[in-house]
């Protein structure tokens, strides 16, 4: 019985590398689709960032693309702009190459940086596994602390039918100085295409 219990406990422990809510993130420097280099510290005027691990090719990411744009429209003026990061290995997913990213950003007029995590080091540091996979970070002094990890909302197919808008709620709560009531939420998505070791 004790053994069974131990196994059950082991199996229910949440095992994940990367940041947890409350962790301070290490800054990074990634190449944007316009050729410039972007880091978190690059903007002094923000209260935080809505970091979106996304890509060109995943059907779920595509379904959420306009919602990521909408999040930026809603929250960039309030101090929480979107930073989109693409981490898929372009060998395994040619549709996610740097030039394909540039085309996508241009075609869809992305109003936010679309960064190429070519080495996949940033996705690994964050513990991003999906596209889309969201991390809301809040600026505290010179540090950025993770306030939310997970899905955008609870309806992939139809934004208007989503009754839990996790990211929107989290950022609104941060802006109001309130604790984030739902700091993590999961959703089915595409696995990040890791480079073959």
């Amino acid at each position: 019985m004790a053994m069974l219990l131990a196994v059950l406990l082991m199996s229910t422990r949440f095992v994940s590398d990367g940041y947890k809510v409350g962790d301070t993130v290490a800054d990074f420097k990634l190449k944007n689709v316009d050729g410039t280099s972007i880091s978190l510290a690059g903007r002094k005027d923000v209260k935080g960032y809505i970091i979106a691990f996304t890509c060109n090719t995943c059907p779920v990411a595509k379904a959420y693309e306009s919602r990521i744009v909408a999040l930026n429209e809603q929250f960039a003026p309030k101090g929480y702009p979107v930073l989109a990061i693409q981490s898929n290995d372009s060998q395994r997913s040619p549709g996610d190459s740097y030039s394909a990213m540039q085309q996508r950003a241009r075609a869809k007029s992305y109003p936010f940086p679309y960064l190429h995590d070519e080495s996949q080091a940033v996705a690994k540091a964050f513990g991003a596994t999906n596209t889309p996979h969201m991390f809301v970070v809040k600026k505290e002094g010179n540090a950025y602390k993770v306030a939310y990890i997970g899905a955008i909302d609870n309806n992939q197919r139809d934004a208007s039918a989503a009754d839990k808008k996790y990211v929107e709620q989290a950022v609104a709560e941060l802006l109001a100085g309130k604790p984030v009531t739902t700091p993590t939420a999961r959703a089915i998505g595409c696995g990040i295409k890791w480079r073959d070791a």
């Binding site: 422990r13 994940s16 998505g189």
Partner: peptide
């Protein structure tokens, strides 16, 4: 519990 939702 260890699954983020990424497929497969």
């Amino acid at each position: 519990p260890e699954w983020s939702g990424a497929l497969p």
